[in-house]
């Protein structure tokens, strides 16, 4: 399953809840959720742990818009809009966390 998160992990609990039950799923961070994948961010530690075991992606245009494309943590993979579509198509199902 593809899990999509679009809210900041310091403002909402969606990243924490998602990480609890991600299982063998894939994670895609978009919009304000991308900050969590930046070096030194309070959520970057647990994200690194997951990225070592699972596929974790961030949407590059959202990172660029926020000025953080140059400070992404190791192990996180970058995708553009085309890659976003591919991820949705590749996965049997998808959960966009509110």
């Amino acid at each position: 399953m593809l899990h999509i998160i679009n809210k900041s992990s310091l403002e909402r609990g969606s990243l924490d809840s998602c990480l609890e039950l991600i299982g063998t799923g894939t994670l895609l961070l978009i919009e304000d959720a991308v900050y969590a994948a930046t070096r030194g961010h309070a959520s970057s530690g647990k994200l690194s742990e997951i990225a070592a075991k699972r596929n974790v992606f961030v949407l590059v245009p959202d990172c660029e818009a926020r000025g953080v494309a140059d400070r992404l943590i190791e192990g996180v993979k970058a995708v553009d809009y085309g890659g976003f579509v591919d991820l949705v198509a590749e996965n049997p199902n998808c959960h966009s966390w509110l």
Binding site: S8, L10, D32, P61, D62, E64, A65, R66, A69, D70
Partner: peptide, 23 residues
Amino acid sequence: MDDGVYQLKKGQQTKGIEHKNFS
């Protein structure tokens, strides 16, 4: 404060999201 500090982050490039860069 909180995520609001990100409003002042240098290097914002919004072309990809087709949004006005107001920074």
